[in-house]
Design a protein around this nucleic acid. Structure first.
Length: 471
RNA sequence: GGUCUCAUCGUCUAACGGUUAGGACACCAGGUUCUCAUCCUGGAAAUCCGGGUUCGAUUCCCGGUGAGAUCACCA
């Protein structure tokens, strides 16, 4: 049994998008591949930014993807006494002190530094400690770390060996004046108390890691293994991610009929590969093969077309029973009274052309309902538009005559269609197009004999008759 | 602006100094007795720029340029 433990620590400020999911996914993969644990911790120490319902939304998103967490969900807002205890320890050892300035005063220091073209460091304004005894702090002011400026060298599993100078070390706020800890402080306490071994997070925290290393020292806590994930980039060069860059709610993908395994395949191979030319991976394969040190250091762009392709590829790998189960919410309204075996035959026909399940109604509606005759299907057809209506009528009548004799088995249909080609001296592109249009009234449909067979004799013949009546 | 990081086809990436710079998505063309799709075959498409080191740089070094991150009582 491994002692590896990773965490996903989102703040409850809205829905989860692909970037957040990818961070969670990589943490989950690291835990699973070594038989370790993955935990979920809600970083809800900023009450002003909290969005109602986002915790449930985050949990639902992870569950949809199968990224189950191994312990109860932790909430930082319920652990304030723990942070207080560690803060007191720092204060008593002289490593934390009350910030005597108002936010306005601090802002003025910052602006003065800017006017002087000097980098702003709070520690240059650090107040004198009181004589004797630990610094006093009544909780009405922020509590700051008394930093110990120095350079650091450390290893990041993704970014490699990193270095920083003492100029990035400063006194930062541990406890805000509202009594809540800052992320910078409490995540370190939590990771330690929860025995997290690998801290895997987005690159927005990379620049803060030296500050964290300084705090780890002040707390006498051994730092965990660090791994910093590059961001998913926008197609528009920079700025915020737009929806087409993947900034939409991850559950929208569920609702459009994307498979969790396709999303996982897509996100894992966005900025990572196993060194071979394999593109399509099952989830358990990824767990086995994933290697955090092979993650690309630079940000990657979200390409929804690749996701679409992968989703189609995963759909094609599903067994019929699996597909039938997963596709259940996506049938067109007209299919609601159709029986299971009929729907399964329809699925068999459309499986290879389905890219996401929301396409199902458009692709299958004509199997369940007679669509109105659409004359444009013929008038815009590149071959049929040149035919006289009388000839089209003649062809359909000949077809009807033959199909009336058919038992509508796939074999018999195929044989009869072949004979009709000879009999009418038409090319497949003309005759088969005509029959397909007459029986489906759809711009696209599965192959002809399969469609006719599934549709059945009654519907097929009556639709041909309807088309005939239209000429 | 300071600090840190990164840089191969449009996109995701492979190539532990020697390859006709490989694969995949997307795109284009052809094939699979109709359409759309699948599948197969083929095509176009890249080492940011400039110096070094080396017999030889995509690869190592330096300098540009570009991109990203960060400099909060947000996480």
């Amino acid at each position: 049994m491994s002692n590896v433990k990773t965490r996903f620590a989102p703040s409850p400020t809205g829905f989860l998008h692909v970037g957040g999911v990818r961070t969670a996914l990589f943490a989950w993969l690291v835990a699973k591949q070594s038989g370790g644990k993955f935990i979920l911790r809600i970083e809800d120490t900023d009450q002003a930014r909290e969005v109602q319902g986002s915790v449930e939304h985050i949990q639902e998103s992870l569950q949809w993807l199968g990224l189950e967490w191994d312990e109860e969900t932790y909430f930082q807002s319920k652990r304030l006494d723990i942070y207080k205890k560690w803060a007191d320890k720092l204060r008593e050892s002289g490593r934390a002190y009350a910030d005597p300035y108002t936010p306005e005063q601090v802002q003025e220091f910052r602006e003065q530094a800017k006017r002087d073209k000097q980098p702003f460091l709070y520690r240059n304004h650090r107040p004198d400690p009181p004589a004797g005894g630990p610094p006093i702090w009544d909780g009405s002011q922020p509590l700051r770390l008394k930093s110990n400026p120095k350079g650091y060298s450390w290893h990041d599993e993704v970014m490699g060996d990193l270095h920083s100078g003492e100029e990035v070390i400063d006194d930062f706020i541990l406890i805000k004046s509202d009594g809540f800890p800052t992320y910078n402080f409490c995540h370190i306490i939590d990771d330690h108390e929860m025995e997290v071994t690998h801290v895997i997070r987005g690159q927005e925290f990379l620049a803060s890691i030296p500050k964290y290393l300084n705090l780890y020292e002040a707390l006498a806590i051994k730092p965990p293994i660090m791994a910093t994930m590059p961001h998913i980039m926008s197609e528009m060069g920079n700025k915020k991610l737009s929806k087409r860059d993947g900034a939409k709610d991850i559950l929208d993908y569920r609702d459009e009929g994307y498979l969790p395994e396709a999303m996982i395949n897509f996100l894992t191979t966005l900025g990572w590969n196993d060194g071979t030319e394999q593109e399509i991976f099952a989830v358990d394969e990824l767990i086995k093969k994933f290697d955090i040190s092979k993650i690309q250091k630079s940000g990657a762009q979200f390409d929804e077309r690749r996701l679409l392709w992968l989703n189609g590829a995963h759909i094609r790998k599903l067994s019929l029973d699996d597909l039938y189960e997963k596709v259940a919410p996506f049938w067109p309204e007209e299919a609601k009274n159709a029986d299971e075996s009929y729907k399964k035959r329809v699925l068999t026909l459309v499986q290879e052309r389905l890219k996401f399940f929301a396409e199902l109604p458009e692709l299958t509606r004509f199997f369940f309902i007679d669509l109105p005759i659409n004359p444009e299907l013929i008038s815009t057809h590149k071959q049929l538009k040149n035919y006289e209506h009388s000839r089209l009528k003649e062809l359909l009548e000949t077809t009807l005559e033959s199909l009336q004799q058919s038992d509508f088995s796939a074999d018999d249909l195929k044989e009869r269609l072949n004979k009709l080609l000879e009999l009418t001296d038409e090319k497949p592109v003309a005759l088969f197009s005509l029959i397909r249009i007459a029986t489906t009234q759809a711009p696209a449909s599965p192959e002809l004999t399969g469609s006719l067979h599934t549709l059945g004799k009654d519907k097929s013949l009556s639709r041909i008759n309807s088309q005939l009546a239209n000429f």
